[in-house]
Simulated scan of single mutants.
Amino acid sequence: MQDIKDTVKEVILAVLPITIVIIILQFTLLWLPMEVFLQFLVGVVMVSSGLILFLLGVHLGLLPVGEMIGSALPKTKKVSLIILVGFLLGFVVTVAEPDVRVLSSQIEDVSDGEISQMVLIYSVALGVAIFVALAMARIIFNIQMKWLLVGGYGFVFLLAAFTPNSYIPISFDAGGVTTGPMTVPFILALGVGVAAVLRGKSSSSDSFGLVALASIGPILAVLMLGVIYG
């Protein structure tokens, strides 16, 4: 019950400010048609209800499952299996990410179908999957995060030099949308589970940085699309 109350409070505090601002603008500057304004209010109610249910699902289902999977994998003592499962989970969670679908749909419209929605979704998901697998390897082999970040972003800027300009902003937007409400909790929970088993609770901070690594993958994936399609 407390989880439900906290989630409802969190959503209200998130949605209420933008709602108040739009209402003030409506009766001072915008004066939108009343039909459009009522649609906005209905949309606020539907979005709030959806976010409450979504976040409850994340806290009650995704997070515990992610930690349980992360805790169970190291016990197999198979490095390849841990990395493979990280790859697969990174892929399927990103495909389910709502933000990625919104971005891909908008890009398909703007590009007049030159970049199809499904090509972009699967490219971004593949990029996330590769870097989640790399993050699992980092935890296992205790690789320093700074070298992975420097190498990853160095490759990003190198690849950007050979990519058409129109793809560069899309690539960084793709990196941003992967830090959404579906991908981040699951990946972090997975990393916490793996790190807690491999190096104890005191070193569970090793799981952090997974999102930073995972966001590099989509950038590289879209840049490579630019090289191919461009």
Rank of each mutant, 00 (worst) to 15 (best):
L188Y: 08
L88G: 10
N142R: 15
L223R: 00
M118A: 15
S171W: 01
I22A: 10
K146D: 14
T7S: 07
V15G: 03
I107C: 09
M1A: 09
V211A: 12
L134K: 06
L16I: 13
G127P: 01
S71I: 05
T163G: 03
P64K: 01
P164Q: 05
D109I: 15
A189Y: 04
V184P: 00
P17K: 04
D112T: 06
F87W: 08
S105C: 10
D173Q: 12
L220V: 12
K78W: 11
V8G: 09
F155Q: 05
V211F: 12
G226K: 05
L73C: 07
T19C: 11
V11P: 05
L16Q: 01
I22N: 04
G200N: 04
Y153D: 06
G113D: 06
A72D: 02
L53S: 14
H59V: 14
V93P: 02
L29R: 12
T178M: 13
L190T: 00
V156E: 03
M46Y: 14
G209D: 04
F40N: 10
L63P: 04
Y167M: 08
V110E: 08
D6W: 11
G127F: 03
A135F: 12
G61N: 07
W31E: 12
G113N: 05
L148A: 09
M34V: 14
F91V: 05
M136A: 15
L55N: 07
P218N: 06
G193I: 06
A96R: 06
S105R: 12
A195N: 04
V95Y: 08
I187F: 14
G43M: 00
G90R: 00
E114H: 06
V65F: 01
F131S: 05
F186H: 02
F91P: 05
L220K: 01
F87Q: 03
F186V: 02
I82K: 09
L51Q: 10
E35H: 11
M68D: 08
M145V: 09
T183L: 13
G152I: 09
I121S: 01
M68I: 09
G193H: 02
V44M: 10
S166L: 10
G217F: 06
